[in-house]
Design a protein around this nucleic acid. Structure first.
Length: 514
DNA sequence: AAAAAAT
């Protein structure tokens, strides 16, 4: 079996790898590193969790040992689809670069430009960036890409999903033809193949066996539930409680950011050690949540698919699909967060009657039927509910009289009853303001989870620019860094209006059909 | 039925 020493890496790097506790390269590392050291282009086809990051970080460190960076002219560039992934790659440079003197700059959105600019000015050996912020710096003239010797494009298929390909093409064209390109993708759809033909020069193709779609070490179960949020939340709480001490830490996936916030607040209210992670949260809160979870200071992380792929969170004991993913491949990515490195893991998916289509697609894709934990949907107690009130009725009632739905009679008994029952059991510290999730947070001691701290230190409201505003609105501590794309309601223990509440402008009540 | 990413 190959060792790292045989790959041709410098002594400094070997020492760092050794110190990090690694002795044997993974297949993608053994395959890609020698080619990368020969300055050849590499096309790496590998899933996350295969040691892909080190397969470009290590040879990059080797090649950076000669020469120095000049101001505003980074020597290497790594493109990542999400901010968390970019930050994770930076951590790898810290880990493997302990014996090197290299400047690394992380260019991601959601944080201030100043420090990023300072690092560019000082001369960066390695630039790790998400496409948007990189182009932003470029357009501001803070950055010259003409000195880039190595370009890494990571998670290319995900970049495609996210609509980044035009940005990637643009960035590639700004970098000299003579560069070396290391290109990684988990899958090779036609668009990605086209991109590699365009930007790679006779690449060495390194493909590692696709980790069997769902690791054998993961126990998968389906759990039936009625479709109302409070039903699903109760099912989830029962599941978590039933797992007891076996559940060391868990990621709970929701399909929508709003549901992440809602479920997070509900779990905290019910006394669970929970945190939230989604793309509309303030960047600092995102980072804090993730690092607390990684460090074991947070037991349950409720997340959108921002956490589904690539994030290196070792040793997650449980994954819950609070919502079954809409795209079958996301199921594999999500449950792949557990059962890593041969450890055992459990993945529970909550299934409601309207989820059967997506479930079928998932089972078809993974080529197996997933077992039900406690009887399939046919054993679900009948719901006397029909189409009427829950969605359309509720919305119309608000539209017509402009009242909050909780005041009206439109809500059935059935709907308010269980919700109240749930609320009564609340005994945990309560997060008093939704902006606590979305606004900048004070720096927290490492051993304190964000969920707990925000309960003690609610974010103070800041007056609106116009001063006279009594309506609820988003507030941040200093007016900057508001990533919210839509109005967020305050957290007040009650179902509250999602829109303007009582202040709906007349024109907004005109029905539209698009 | 969504999420992600520049502001």
């Amino acid at each position: 079996m190959t060792t790292f020493a045989e790959l041709g890496l410098s002594p400094k790097i070997l020492a760092a790898v050794d110190a990090a506790g690694y002795t044997t390269p993974t297949p993608i590392q053994a395959g890609a590193i020698p080619h990368a050291l020969e300055r050849k282009d590499v096309l790496g086809i590998a899933q996350t969790g295969t040691g892909k990051t080190a397969s470009f970080v290590l040879p990059m460190l080797h090649l950076l040992e000669k020469g120095r960076a000049r101001a505003r002219m980074p020597r290497t560039l790594i493109l990542e689809p999400t901010r968390e992934l970019a930050a994770q790659v930076e951590e790898n440079f810290v880990k493997y670069g302990v014996n090197h003197r290299i400047n690394v700059a992380l260019l991601i959105g959601g944080v201030s430009f100043d420090e990023q600019e300072r690092k560019l000015e000082r001369g960066a050996d390695v630039l790790i960036a998400t496409p948007g912020r990189l182009l932003d710096h470029f357009e501001r003239g803070k950055l010259l890409l003409t000195g880039v010797e190595i370009l890494v494009i990571d998670e290319a298929d995900r970049m495609l999903d996210m609509g980044f390909i035009p940005d990637i093409e643009r960035i590639c064209k700004l970098i000299p033809f003579t560069r070396q390109t290391l290109f990684f993708s988990a899958t090779m759809p036609a668009e990605i193949t086209k991109l590699t033909e365009q930007f790679l020069h006779s690449p060495a193709r390194v493909e590692v066996a696709k980790a069997s779609t769902t690791a054998k070490t993961v126990t998968q179960r389906l759990v039936k539930s009625a479709k109302k949020p409070w039903d699903k939340r109760a099912v989830l709480r029962d599941l978590i409680n039933a797992e007891g001490d076996e559940l060391k830490n868990a990621i709970v996936f929701c399909n929508r950011k709003m549901d992440v916030s809602e479920l997070f607040r509900s779990l905290v209210k019910h006394g669970f050690d929970a945190g939230a992670l989604h793309g509309d949260m303030d960047q600092r809160a995102r980072m804090t949540m993730l690092s607390n979870f990684k460090d074991g200071n947070l037991r349950i992380l409720v997340a959108s698919d921002v956490a589904a792929r690539g994030l290196d969170i070792p040793d997650v004991s449980h994954v819950f699909n609070y919502d079954i993913p809409i795209h079958a491949e996301d199921y594999v990515h999500r449950i792949g967060r557990t059962g890593r490195a041969g450890r055992s893991g459990k993945a529970f998916s909550i299934i409601t009657p309207s989820d059967t289509k997506h479930l079928d697609a998932i089972e078809k894709m993974i080529g197996e039927k997933i077992e039900w934990l406690d009887g399939d949907l046919s054993t679900l107690p009948a719901q006397e509910e029909t189409e009427d009130t829950s969605r359309r009725g509720g919305r119309n009632s608000r539209g017509k009289n402009g009242k909050k739905p909780r005041d009206g009679k439109d809500h059935k008994e059935k709907q308010t009853q269980p919700r109240n029952a749930e609320e009564k059991t609340a005994d945990a510290p309560v997060v008093t303001d939704i902006s606590a999730i979305d606004a900048p947070q004070p720096v927290l001691p490492d051993n304190v989870s964000l969920g707990t701290v925000v309960a003690q230190e609610p974010v103070r409201p800041v007056p609106h620019k116009n001063g006279n505003d009594e309506r609820r609105q988003n507030h941040t501590q200093n007016g900057q860094q508001n990533n919210n794309k839509r109005h967020r309601r305050d957290f007040d223990d009650e179902p509250s209006p999602l829109g303007f509440g009582d202040d709906v402008p007349a024109f907004m009540l005109i029905p539209i059909n698009i």
